[in-house]
Each structure stands twice: as structure tokens, then as C-alpha cells.
Amino acid sequence: MSENTVTPALELERVGKAFGNVIALNDVSLRVNPGSVTCVLGDNGAGKSTLIKILSGVHKHTSGAFRVEGADADFSSPRDALANGIATVFQDLATVPLMSVWRNFFIGNEPTKWWKPLGLLDVKKAKRIAKEQLLQMGIDLRDTNQAIGTLSGGERQAVAIARAVYFGAKVLILDEPTSALGVRQSGIVLKYILAARERGVAVVFITHNPHHAFLVGDRFYLLNRGRMIAEFERGNVELEQLTQAMAGGADLDTLTHEISVIRAE
């Protein structure tokens, strides 16, 4: 597929966001195609969180254009974004720890029975679907009644991803899904990212870990101090290049030099 024949699931063009006189994002452009994994890499304070919040409808951008499937998007809440098929899995905020697994699976999207406006929860259906969907992701829970806080970090992320995919997300935004996880758990999450991609979902994977990004990404954007400083396609980039660019190239050289001086003393 060539670059311009596909309508991007999500597109930012010269988007900026200012909080008062603090400019959090400046002139950021990005394309996210269906069935691909787009990685946004950046160190702490690069503007990743602000970018996610714009994409997921928490904040509104102050300049530039934000398009979803070619049409201008104007979201006033995450509910709006969700209604347009954009689901976000926030780091640590994806689930409510005290609530049971099945309740978490359906938060904000509860299955109802009889007459919808009545808001009658179809508990049986909810439990069954949650169990099935999690099983397909390789998470076998005997009891979906258990509080989700009792699951491991990777499993919680997996529940959140399974939930988004089940609800037909066209765009899945993952905020640092692997940052708090061990190697094996990270591997599980990366596997689900690819599984979602196979289903034609456009995945936006936001991370500060170039190793994880390199494993699954089709396109890489590098964010630094609120600006998009580089863009790579899979196949045209090496892991070293990515790591180097992410840490801000020259800065890393200076740092390496300074540390070697200290060690030499």
C-alpha cells in the first residue's frame, strides 16, 4: 500500500497545544494507518501525554488540524472519541482496581437487556463475554468476579486491550503499556499489540522504550520538547538509530563523554 492511497485512520497536521503561555505541543504532524502500529517515542516531558490527551478527546488542540478517517474531529470528551472508534488505554488508569474483572471489562459500555434506556445490566452476558474474550487473549480466570486489582500489571493491560478490541476500536491508543512491566509481561502486551494490528486496528503505541517500539512498530515518530523531530519507516531504520535519535543524539554524546570523564577519575 502506498502512502497516500489509504485514508489514515487518524491524522494530525501541524497541531499545536498551549496551556496558557506554556507550549506543550508545536507543529506536530502524524499519520496513523489502519492495520499498522505507529510508535510515538519520546523521553519524559517530550509532550507524549499531551498528544495522547488530544487524540483521546481529553484536551482540545489549539492550532492545526485533527482528522479522523479524513473528517475533521471535534471531540469534547473521551466519550466522543470512543464513539468515533478511538479507544485509549491509559497507563495505570485503564482499570478500576476495586471493581471485578467483568465490571471493568464493560465500564462505560455495559451490555443491557430488555429496553436499553432502562439501563438493565445483562450480568450473565457480561460475565460470559468477558471470560471468552480474555480466554482468547490467553488469560484464564476461574472467576471474573475477582477484583481486577488482584491481577498482574500485564494482565490488567491485556484486559484493557481486549476490551478496546472487543468494542470495535478502529484506533487503539496505548499509553506506555509496558513501562511498569517485567520482560515476560511486556512480551505478552506486545503480542496483543500485534494481535490487534492483525484485526485491522490502527495502533498508536506511545513509549519511551525504543526496544519495545522496534519489535512491533511499522512507523516511528520521535517527539522531543513538544516537537516532532524525526520520522522513520520500518525497514529504513536500525534500533541504534532509533535509540540515538530518541535520546536527542548530540545530548547523548555529551552525556557519554561526561560520564566517561567521571568514571576515569
Partner: peptide, 15 residues
């Protein structure tokens, strides 16, 4: 439950 358990997570999930 969601509003009291974690209002942010709830809002993000569309509650």
C-alpha cells in the same frame, strides 16, 4: 462503582 473507585479511569472509559 467506577466513579468512586477511580474517577479518572472511569471518565477515560466513557463513564
Amino acid at each position: 462503582f467506577a466513579s468512586g473507585g477511580d474517577a479518572n479511569a472511569a471518565r477515560n472509559a466513557g463513564v
